[in-house]
Design a protein around this nucleic acid. Sequence first.
RNA 1: GGGGGUGUAGCUCAGUUGGUUAGAGCGAUCGCCUGUCACGCGAUAGGUCGCGGGUUCGAGUCCCGUCACUCCCGCCA
Length: 595
Amino acid sequence: MKTYRTHTCSELNLKNNGEEVLLSGWINKKRDHGNLLFIDLRDNYGITQCVIDNKNSLFKKIEKIPLETVVKFKGKVVKREKNTINKDLNTGEIEVKILNFEILGTSKELPLPVFSDQEYSEEIRLKYRFLDLRRAKIHKNINLRSRVISFIRKEMESLGFLEYQTPILTSSSPEGARDFLVPSRLNPGKFYALPQAPQQFKQLIMVSGFDKYFQIAPCFRDEDARADRSPGEFYQLDIEMSFVSQEEIFNVVENLLNKVFKKFSNKQIQNEKFPKIPYCESMLKYGTDKPDLRNPLEICDLTKIFTRNDVKFEIFKKLVREGSIVRAIITKNTNNKSRSFFDNIDKWAKEEGSSGLAYFTFEKENNKIIGKGPIGKFFSSEACQEIIKSSKAEIGDSIFFACGQKKDVEKLLSLARDKIAKELEIIDENAFAFCWIVDYPMYEIDDKSGKIKFSHNPFSMPQGDISKLNFDNPLDIKAYQYDIVCNGIELSSGAIRNHIPSLMYKLFSAAGYDSKSVDEKFSGMINALSYGAPPHGGIAPGVDRIIMLLANEKNIREVTMFPLNQNAQDLMMNAPSNVEDEQLKELNINIIKKK
RNA sequence: GGGGGUGUAGCUCAGUUGGUUAGAGCGAUCGCCUGUCACGCGAUAGGUCGCGGGUUCGAGUCCCGUCACUCCCGCCA
């Protein structure tokens, strides 16, 4: 005997006509005609219209039930008249004539309406997240998340991967993001760290001979939030495999992502075989290592043009002589665009903190190519010809220049690519454009200290003949290190790992770590690699971001059930919070009070 | 740590050059309404204009400070 329901709120249809049923759910909406009352009853599965009129003695009582009250209705399924069918509902061909009711959970007046498509402030949504989560769109997103994760698990298992769990309380690691620390009661003055990723553990799993690992792994990083980055915690599909090349890992992930994105979205995948773009090429053509390939605009280097005598644009020429570079974006067929289109982009660039974007348009006049626009007159016809040649521009195209230090130019033009493409509406919103970014440099120069540091994961395997690595030019060493990018969002990064301890010491040494400090900081890892470690590698796609793309959301909190706000607070549970002095004492912790 | 945006009724927002008693929609309460599905109609209640200070005869509006939320930069191997 069912106590609460015989059917869910999306189940009933014409086949049930005449049946007596029990439904339980929330009062989503009432439409009260005075002597006739419609109630939309909602549960996780859908909505069923229930109806009662004043011939029923319960009418006055039911009429008074507030929205979001949880009720049980006993009723009879009746076919709706043709002109009253609601095609938007699964249950729209029937309604339930209420015979009896019971209130299961009362509701106070709502701080935010559940039945509404309106936008609400994050503050109120997060404080009353349990109400917010009842709303259709986010409820759907969260269930999508569950189905995607379940699908990924099944796929991984069918490929022979096994899910292994790794510790949540681990040790602080010297590289990477800021750690969340957990004080140890049994070891006064010492701290655990929450894992930024199960990086070392998954490698240890390979060393332990398990071969194919995956985990939907929680990761914790104490860094500031962004729209696509939760503060605190996020999930990775963590993968590691033994005895594999980079290419084999690519195949696993490419196939998986193709399947996931085809199953859970109707958008087109631009290239099912993900293009592989070397890091340097990406930095040149897109100004970033996470390019949005839906955007057809590309950047080209035109520094040389500004060394010509027939180019008179002295500001840039002077900067180039002093070591600046010039790069540019060509826009196709924009000679008919208004002056304000160009000026707005220049204005935008200035708002971004740059000195702006100089521009002109290529036109043909008396059979000669000339530059039309504010700085066009500074370029001779021959110089224009040369620009057209090296940038693949055509008559009628426009060109936007940026000049400055390499990093600044890359950054500005990367943003400008997005900005201009949006203005021109040339981004295909109905596509997923994946790519691999490959051949990352092993090292980079630290901006602050000017010293050599690891640019990514210090455990990555360098490329080339490892016996002939040239440590005199460490910046030229590339790693088997790769990222997946989709629509300009970094989805994951991974690497073939360095499983050779002697090589690891050399690599660390180039970044300024002596062997003693490597032993201290990575003793577990180095030690393990010294007892027969298999070649191995892996990757870790971000689950939250995958769901974000599938749900077509721009904010990660829209696919996270109970997210922290931008200040890493949980407004509903009131975390973080003060703790009792007794607790602190037990942990040997003193709070330093700020003045 | 820095920059931008926002903050007015329970919710979403309007509020003119600084000028009478700060408005609308939704929600709530009450009344009318038997085919709605954003039901309709009428009425009532509901405000520390984020907070503090200043300018002014007069501040939701201008100025300074501060707080909260959010977006971005820094940060995120």
